[in-house]
């Protein structure tokens, strides 16, 4: 098979996946919720910032990061978990695999289609809040804004590939979706709470605390996002100072590569599972 036909197949599958995603009610709901909340948070954050025209990085601006950390992994994980499992249950996957395509193409097509859909959804939310921030004269610059957008896309891809892994490994939609939701809970809540608890019990050092926290890709995202918006990590206390002292601005490429690794490894695993399992 030549590269051109591979490309044509992948793009065809991607477009199909994009159509499906846009028809998916969950996807539409996520898009609307993200856009509305991002707008509302930017508005509230700036309403307080009118004070003498001096604005900092208050609790409310921080909640924008919070919103991203809550909703974007949920979007990626659920959409990814539904992608293969739903079609497998409906039998359409069997139909697709009966065509002259290989599993790799199907997986890549799905990933691309969903990634485009997610990027579009996030750019609508970011675009709207960006316009609002610009109009109200926010302290956030274009570089930090686009950087945050890029990081958010990475986070979306990461959770998407995790979702696809569940989808390819688990036989039923319900189990895939359930596992995806549990993974979300683990990433967003349980991981940090667990680390907090064990740090309290075991009295681990600042260095260890920082290193362990980087096992959670969401923390990696958070550290990079704060570094982008604030250009330092003072707000994260001693651990932040330690990280800044040790890595400085190298944290940004470092965390980007960690996020990319978190995307690639589940994808490779997903491919292996999918090749073995096929349409069953």
């Amino acid at each position: 098979m030549t590269t051109t036909t591979v490309r044509a197949t992948v793009s065809l599958l991607a477009r199909k996946e994009l159509h499906d995603a846009l028809r998916n009610r969950w996807f539409v709901l996520y898009t609307v919720v993200f856009a509305v909340l991002a707008l509302a948070l930017s508005w509230i954050g700036l309403a307080g910032g009118q004070l003498y025209g001096l604005a900092g990085f208050g609790r409310t601006t921080a909640s924008l990061i919070n919103l991203i950390m809550l909703i974007v992994p949920l979007m990626g994980l659920t959409l990814g978990a539904l992608s293969l499992a739903l079609e497998r249950e409906q039998g359409t996957l069997l139909y697709i695999l009966a065509q002259p395509v290989v599993p790799g193409e199907v997986l890549l097509g799905k990933l691309l289609g969903l990634a485009i859909a997610l990027t579009a959804a996030l750019s609508i939310g970011f675009g709207l809040s960006g316009l609002l921030l610009a109009w109200r004269g926010s302290p956030i610059g274009l570089g930090a804004y686009l950087g945050l957008f890029g990081l958010t896309i990475l986070l979306a891809l990461l959770s998407l590939s995790l979702g696809i892994l569940f989808s390819s490994a688990l036989p039923r939609t319900a189990t895939a979706l359930g596992s995806a939701l549990f993974a979300w809970l683990l990433l967003v809540f349980l991981g940090d709470l667990g680390l907090l608890g064990s740090a309290l019990a075991l009295r681990i050092s600042v260095e260890q605390l920082f290193t362990f926290s980087l096992l959670n890709p969401l923390q990696v995202f958070k550290v990079a996002a704060i570094l982008l918006l604030r250009s330092d990590l003072q707000v994260l206390g001693p651990a932040g100072q330690y990280a800044m002292h040790l890595y400085g601005w190298r944290l940004l490429p470092l965390s980007t590569s960690v996020l990319l690794l978190w995307t690639l490894i589940p994808l490779i695993l997903a491919y292996l599972f999918f090749r073995r399992r096929g349409a069953l």
Binding site: S123, G127, W135, F149
Partner: peptide, 17 residues
């Protein structure tokens, strides 16, 4: 108002839309 940031926002909105 920050026109550059507005352009960035508009560009993202257009891409998504």
């Amino acid at each position: 108002p920050r026109p550059v940031l507005a352009l960035g926002g508009l560009a993202l909105l257009l891409i998504g839309g």
